[in-house]
């Protein structure tokens, strides 16, 4: 019990530091892939410190209370998600919230971005806000299919409490439905990886903060500590969404293989989880970011609603077929 309370206090703060670490690694790797040297690993931390020193300008026509509270809401909500996700260890708030909760909590940071953009009373920010909203509408469809498919797979193989994240990350889903199920799950995993850059606003889906088109979009009027909070929220969101993907599709633990016990087991599992999260982020965010260009907003909708949706439904059918055999 005390352990739980302690973890509940430590995990969100650790999430911020880990998020900044991943951001740093991402920048170095992207730079090396583009033939540059890249900034040092602690650059994101320095960026945050720089932002905290700058002035916090609130536009005249902006709805002040909404404008200033949205970064706060974004960071708080995204840190709260970490408490419900299994980070190698069982989720801190196990039994108090499940997969659907995580799915809905992931909406709140993006919603805070949208409302903050609209509250800025800048035309660039409004365009950015509506683009972000359209993007959110688009990627929720394949994300929902992915999440429900995994839950359904567990349900039809007779598990109890299929939406609880500890059950999902404790069951190895890849073997549950035979060969068609394996194929279906692979397709759905691919779609999930495709959703991650959309969720994080990385290229090719960074329409809402397009620097060259709409002067920073949502963040056009944000500066100082508000922008710092949004930056931190973005960093933590990467950890959260990647941890969700890992929990759904890559739930393996290391301590069983090495036969560790006592206090070493959760630590080893946690480190292995960080490794898996790095792998997911590298494949879906870093590599994609350096090789593609930005998509137009109408393209974003069709890109998410045509191929990933059809593929995910195909995957779901394969899974359903696999369970019947």
């Amino acid at each position: 019990m005390i352990m739980k309370v302690l973890l509940a206090m430590v995990v969100p703060v650790a999430g911020i530091l880990i998020g900044l670490l991943y951001k740093g690694i991402d920048r170095i790797l992207a730079a090396r892939m583009q033939g540059r040297v890249g900034p040092p690993l602690v650059q994101p931390l320095r960026d945050v410190r720089k932002l905290l020193v700058k002035e916090n300008i609130v536009p005249d026509d902006a709805v002040g209370w909404l404008f200033s509270s949205m970064p706060f809401v974004a960071l708080v909500s995204v840190m709260a998600i970490l408490l419900y996700l299994p980070l190698g260890i069982t989720p801190v708030l196990e039994g108090y919230g499940d997969l659907i909760l995580v799915l809905y909590l992931l909406i709140i940071p993006s919603l805070a971005l949208v409302l903050g953009g609209f509250a800025s009373s800048s035309p660039y920010a409004s365009v950015g806000g509506q683009r972000e909203m359209v993007k959110m509408m688009s990627y929720e469809f394949p994300l929902a299919i992915a999440v429900i498919s995994v839950a359904w797979l567990l349900y039809s193989s007779g598990a109890e409490n299929v939406f609880s994240l500890s059950v999902i990350s404790g069951t190895h889903v890849w073997g549950l439905a035979g060969i068609p199920g394996l194929a279906g799950l692979a397709v759905i995993f691919l779609c999930m990886l495709f959703v991650i850059p959309g969720e994080l606003g990385r290229i090719p889906f960074d329409v809402s903060e397009a620097d060259s088109e709409i002067a920073g979009g949502i963040f056009a009027e944000y500066s100082g500590r508000n922008l710092a909070l949004f930056y931190l929220a973005d960093a933590v969101k990467a950890v959260a969404i990647a941890s969700l993907a890992v929990a759904l599709f890559l739930p393996y633990t290391v301590s069983g293989i090495f036969g560790l016990g006592g206090a070493a087991a959760p630590a080893a599992d946690f480190l292995f989880h960080l490794l898996k999260v790095f792998f997911v982020l590298f494949v879906s965010s870093t590599v994609v970011r350096v090789v593609t260009g930005r998509l137009a907003i109408s393209r974003v909708v069709s890109v998410y609603w045509k191929y990933p949706v059809i593929l995910s439904f195909l995957g779901l059918l394969l899974i359903m077929g696999g369970t019947l055999i």
Partner: peptide
């Protein structure tokens, strides 16, 4: 939990400049 996290975020926020 949200209340506790809000305290943490408020601490981070107060490290920054308030006005302009």
């Amino acid at each position: 939990c949200v209340a506790f996290i809000s305290v943490v975020v408020q601490i981070i926020r107060s490290l920054g400049e308030g006005g302009f």
